[in-house]
């Protein structure tokens, strides 16, 4: 069996990528299983998805704690403890990261163990599709290449899964073509089946009664959400070109998260620790004084405190 774990941010396509991989394996006659997990979070927040591929019926269920291949759609997740990218990874694990850095550069920057390989899928997607969007087809194709699936089955799987999302035929074809280019472009690393893990019986602990003051989720603090930095959600950052700014306040007004404040001389000040990178300010700025720049620093762009 091969156990593949995908990590992405809501909206990047990790879930669909895992479906594409599972479907492609199924089309080649394998038994496949895939399932996503997202907590009470949404677009931009960490998501994981799991695909198991085998020749025999798969009896394992649930999370993949010891993956053979990890596919990371967003390098800024590596150091986000909530994403648990590093869980169960050792020197034998194959790891693909969507990053402009090479595997070696990434290893020195992030101390990721495993057999690393990278490709800048975001750059490819922006270049080929002209906008930021889901990377599902590209991630699926790369993962398929690494586990040894064929191009034709991946192409078919992309068509099926994207049609399920009601994408237009032209968009699907474009995705297939770009994905198969990524299939060819990614540097393969070997993906080995891991040692099977012994299954231990679950230890149930009966819950004890707690009074509401202890037993409910009571928050006795004011406005402490600022301790949670959402800056790592960004693929693009809004950057001010000061000379073009006419001080109109529109960016400040329209920012949903309230991360833009106006200085005394009416220039926007952006709180990059929290800016989620929605680009509303870039769209609404009447003088184009805000521009979107790709977050390039990869894995070390942001660290949770």
């Amino acid at each position: 069996m091969r156990a593949v774990r995908f990590h992405g941010r809501g909206g990047q396509g990790a879930k669909t990528a895992s479906r594409i991989l599972g479907t492609a394996a199924f089309l080649e006659g394998f038994v496949a299983q895939d399932s996503p997990i997202y907590g009470a979070e949404r677009r931009g927040a960490p998501v994981a998805a799991y695909t198991r591929i085998a020749k025999e019926p798969i009896l394992e269920r649930g999370l993949i704690i010891h993956p053979d291949l990890v596919v990371v759609a967003d390098a800024s997740l590596i150091h986000d403890p909530a994403a648990r990218v590093l869980e169960g990874i050792d020197e034998r694990t194959a790891v693909f990261v969507n990053s402009p850095l090479t595997g070696e550069q990434l290893r020195t920057q992030t101390s990721l163990p495993g057999r690393l390989t990278t490709l800048d899928l975001t750059e490819i997607s922006v270049r080929e599709f002209g906008k930021r969007g889901a990377l599902s087809a590209l991630l699926g194709a790369v993962a398929g290449r690494l586990v040894g699936l064929r191009q034709d089955s991946l192409g078919q799987a992309i068509a099926r899964e994207l049609a399920d999302l009601s994408l237009a035929a032209s968009v699907i074809e474009r995705n297939q073509a770009v994905a198969l280019n990524c299939y060819d472009a990614v540097r393969p690393v070997s993906v080995e089946a891991g040692a099977s893990q012994p299954i231990l019986p679950a230890q149930l602990q009966p819950p004890t009664y707690e009074p509401p003051t202890r037993g409910t989720a009571r928050i006795s603090a004011a406005a402490n959400s600022v301790l949670r930095e959402t800056g790592g959600w960004r693929t693009f950052r809004p950057v001010l070109v000061p000379d073009k700014c006419n001080g109109c306040w529109l960016c400040f007004v329209y920012c949903p998260d309230g991360v833009i404040s106006m200085t005394k001389d009416d220039k926007p000040l952006i709180d990059y620790d929290h800016c989620k990178g929605c680009q509303i300010c870039v769209h609404e700025c009447p003088t184009d004084a805000l521009v979107a720049e790709r977050e390039k620093e990869g894995g070390v762009a942001w660290r949770a405190k």
């Binding site: 931009g44 959400s225 600022v226 949670r228 930095e229 329209y254 949903p256 998260d257 309230g258 989620k276």
Partner: peptide
Amino acid sequence: VLPGTSLCAGCGGLE
């Protein structure tokens, strides 16, 4: 309404 919530980037409701 301070930042740091996990509503989607670009949420019109939050705005």
